[in-house]
Design a protein around this nucleic acid. Structure first.
Length: 817
RNA sequence: GCCCAGGUGGCGAAAUCGGUAGACGCAAGGGACUUAAAAUCCCUCGGCAUAUGCCGUGCCGGUUCGAGUCCGGCCCUGGGCACCA
């Protein structure tokens, strides 16, 4: 064994061993319990950043840990290869997106290998390859056949100078990022997936996901947003139209003083045609971004449409306003406004001097509330509501609903916040949508036998619109039905489509005849999924939806794709998310060159618990490196000793303490890695154990067999985190089997026993002393011992003792007057 | 604006179910070894006092024998808001 730790050499040796022995090649074995561990696959942006290292190290630690517990582990890796950055790079560097993406995959693949992650590289796949997106196109057609796909108009950001649809990210302060032109909201036809058909399942099944963080489930619940209420029909005066308005507060129906409709609402378009001032207002509403965050923060504005609606019970005429804060995409694009009992409506009514009519009060007699100052949001008793006056919230709600039902002017309704998923993108670098348009036959899905529709890769890319729209050789085709001339859809899929099913495809990436084969039944679902908290809603919801849709097509057998979820925090630098666009990334390659992969892995795992966001700083890496050097040195020292394997017949108290610490550490590290997934505290405990080994080795009680036991346990526990150095050191300690094939250490319960326990003694909750008591002492003994303490006596003095609270194995609190 | 997190020493953090606040590490200061440096090892390290005390976990208030942890109200930072991935 070398006396010096040389990470570069030993890391190559270990990696060579794993490769040569195909250590991480996963084979289906019905006799072994499987464990599928997956970190969210990367977008090949160019090179790895620290966030990737964190993500993939967590996955590797869990995979290697489960392997040591005897599971048949699958840990695959692939590339989420379609996306916008490749198009940007294509414009900037005049290189086709496919070529740019492939280069990045090559480079990042090398970086992942250098970090020593235990992937089954034979399953590597890229979503931009036809072998992959073939089955996405096939699945889309299956959904189409099931009626889960439809086309409708939807809003996009339109750059009127570049004549291009812009992503929200490409709109900066309301202007196109390249043209600097004011962005307009424009409606275009787009394909949608009916995720709302699964809304109830997506909501209810969250309760079965016991391995998911509560925070993520709450976010999804709120996003899906189930609410119960009423759909109220407001007849438009002097017109045939009816406005269908959803409300969660039917009890406030008599407080409605105006209705508000979205600028894109058909009624708005209709009346604006004859009214120039309305037309002007609608045009103003059309500028700006389509993102909800922008719509929610803009100044609320509106204009009286001149139309009137008839109140469904009182028959009063109510003005219909066109406003910029009602979303056409949400519900019916129209709302009823009750300024007296809703904050937003109140503010709008104040601004435009619309009437505010209080219809709910704390009681019939308590009318002290000043409705002119602020809205009354609470539930209460109805007033000013005809014959409904005096009814409390629940009765009022039911009575009004009954009346609406009777008159055929409303019904009970469950409303969801979740909207259908628009999957069309007016971009080149994505999966072609397998649809053909024929003048004679209409919309025709591409037949299975003609799949995949291959995206042409050698193209000219100028940034103005999709190149596919300028390629007749691509879009001109024949109709599968009538064989007449027809054109292809030139839009491509949202890239969330690829990431919604890749986890299942990893079970059989080489299957060329179908989407999945029987191997998916062995590996799915994913036992542990790891990824950034920024994916808590969209990606995870879409993947859950796909999984359920695949289940209903008998492609998978389970209800949910991911059993346990670890949402890792963001890696921040200078207080902001690390990203290439901000330019604050840290390249892990420099750190690997200086310290080796083990130090980088160790430090990233040590710096914070995985769910916390991590403010990146290079300082501290030295500490991780120093720890590994100390570990190397201690094993080197131990190897010179020739330890006796003989057990100690009469260990000294110091030797018992040392062995207890060793087994307490095994217990804690097992719990920290397996249950808590707090790798940072596991590492801290292992550092404490190494510190204790140093002290023990230098003490007169030193025993080589005990040190050997502790060092072996330490190497085994460290091996998921720093697999290379532990590979070398376990051989050095005299093992002939590679550490990667050895089992996780077990706790000797006998070693944990203690003769005495330490108690903190408090007086009125303040710590005043620490006492040592025999392990078997009862509460009386403990109270006696505590009261006998000199410092405790001094603090009690002449005062009267009221209570003594004893918390087992921990604490004694004496309450005095 | 709405939803979800977080705020603890000079710094990264820990405190798992309401029970010793600051484990573990970084930086810094002091010392040992060395011709010297690096490396390594030892000691100190929240603030104020100076023997066993007081204060201290974003701010204000509450519950409790006891609050970083629970409750109410604020402030600030981060993530998401459906076309970044």
């Amino acid at each position: 064994m070398e006396s010096q730790y040389n990470p570069q050499q030993i890391e190559l040796d270990a990696q060579h061993y794993w490769e040569k022995n195909q250590t991480f090649k996963a084979k289906e074995d019905p006799l072994k319990e499987k464990y599928y561990c997956l970190s969210m696959f990367p977008y090949p942006s160019g090179s790895l950043h620290v966030g990737h290292v964190r993500n993939y190290t967590i996955g590797d630690v869990i995979s290697r840990f489960q392997r040591m517990l005897g599971k048949n582990v699958l840990q695959p890796i692939g590339w989420d290869a379609f996306g916008l950055p490749a198009e940007n790079a294509a414009i900037k560097n005049k290189v086709p997106p496919a070529q740019w993406t492939d280069q990045n995959i090559q480079h990042m693949g090398r970086q992942l290998r250098r970090l020593g992650f235990g992937y089954d590289w034979d399953r590597e796949m890229s979503t931009c390859k036809p072998e992959y997106y073939h089955w996405e196109q096939w699945f889309f057609i299956k959904l189409y056949e099931k009626g889960l796909v439809y086309k409708k108009n939807a809003l996009v950001n339109w750059d009127p100078v570049d004549n291009t649809v812009l992503a929200n990210e490409q709109v900066i302060d309301g202007r196109g990022w390249r043209s600097n032109a004011k962005v307009e909201r424009r409606e275009i036809p787009q394909w949608f997936l009916k995720i709302t058909a699964y809304a109830d399942q997506l909501l209810n099944d969250l309760d079965t996901l016991t391995g998911w963080p509560a925070q993520v489930k709450t976010m999804q619940r709120n996003w899906i947003g189930r609410s119960e209420g009423a759909l109220v029909h407001f007849q438009v005066a002097d017109m045939a139209d009816t406005l269908q308005v959803f409300t969660t507060r039917p009890d406030t129906l008599f407080g409605v003083t105006y209705l508000a409709i979205a600028p894109e609402h058909p009624l708005a378009t209709l009346v604006a045609a004859k009214n120039p001032s309305l037309k002007g207002f609608l045009a103003e509403c059309q500028t700006g971004k389509v993102a909800e965050a922008d719509l929610a923060t803009i100044e609320k504005r509106g204009i009286d449409s001149g139309l009137r609606a008839i109140h469904p019970i009182s028959n009063e005429l109510i003005p219909i306003w066109i406003t910029n804060y009602v979303l056409m995409d949400y519900g019916s694009g129209a709302i009823m406004a009750v300024p007296a009992h809703d904050q937003r409506d109140f503010e709008f009514a104040k601004k435009y001097q619309l009437p505010i009519r209080q219809v709910v009060a704390r009681s019939l007699t308590d009318l002290s509330f000043d409705i002119d100052k602020q809205p009354f949001i609470e539930k209460g008793v109805l007033i000013n509501s005809n014959h409904f006056d005096g009814l409390a919230y629940a009765e009022a709600r039911d009575a009004i609903l009954q009346q609406l039902l009777k008159d055929n002017k409303g019904e009970k309704q469950v409303q969801w916040r979740l909207r259908d998923w628009g999957v069309s993108r007016q971009r080149y670098w994505g999966t072609p949508i397998p649809i053909i348009y024929c003048d004679a036959c209409g919309t025709v899905p591409v037949p299975e036998k003609d799949l995949p529709i291959i995206l042409p890769e050698s193209i000219e890319f100028d940034g103005v619109g999709s190149p596919l729209k300028k390629m007749p050789e691509y879009y001109n085709t024949t109709c599968p039905n009538c064989q007449g001339a027809a054109v292809r859809e030139t839009d491509t899929f949202d890239t969330f489509m690829e990431s919604s099913w890749y986890y299942a495809r990893f079970a059989c990436p080489d299957q060329s005849m179908k989407m999945f084969d029987e191997r998916v039944d062995y590996w799915a679902p994913v036992d542990q999924y790891i990824g950034g908290i920024e994916h808590a809603i969209l990606h995870l919801l879409y993947a859950r939806f796909f999984h359920k849709a695949m289940r209903d097509l008998k492609l998978v057998q389970t209800d949910e794709p991911f059993l346990r979820l670890l949402s890792q925090g963001m890696v921040l630098k200078d207080g902001a998310k690390m990203s290439k666009s901000i330019g604050n990334t840290v390249d892990p390659e420099d750190l690997i060159a200086q310290y080796g992969a083990d130090t980088v892995r160790l430090f990233v795992m040590f710096a914070a618990s995985p769910e916390q966001s991590l403010e990146w700083s290079d300082s501290g890496v030295d500490g991780a490196y120093r720890f590994l050097k100390r570990l190397w040195h201690m094993v080197f020292q131990q190897v010179q000793q020739k330890p006796t394997q003989q057990e100690l017949l009469a260990p000294t108290p110091a030797q018992k303490d040392f062995r207890r610490l060793c087994h307490e550490t095994i217990q804690k590290v097992t719990d920290d890695i397996g249950r808590r997934q707090t790798f940072n505290t596991a590492i801290a405990s292992m550092m404490e154990l190494l510190n204790a080994i140093y002290i023990f080795a230098a003490s007169p009680h030193h025993n080589a067999a005990l040190t050997q036991e502790a060092l072996q346990a330490l190497l085994l526990m460290l091996s998921p985190i720093t697999p290379h150095i532990t590979h070398a050191l376990m051989y050095a300690l005299g093992h002939s089997e590679a550490i990667v094939n050895l089992p996780w250490p077990t706790v000797d319960v006998g070693a944990l026993a203690k003769d005495t326990l330490k108690f903190v003694v408090q007086i009125n909750g303040k710590m005043r002393a620490e006492i040592t008591a025999p392990a078997h002492a009862d509460n009386k003994d403990l109270e006696h011992l505590a009261l006998n303490d000199e410092n405790v006596q001094r603090h009690i003095g002449e005062k009267e003792i009221q209570r003594v609270i004893i918390i087992a194995k921990k604490l004694i609190n004496i309450v005095i007057k």
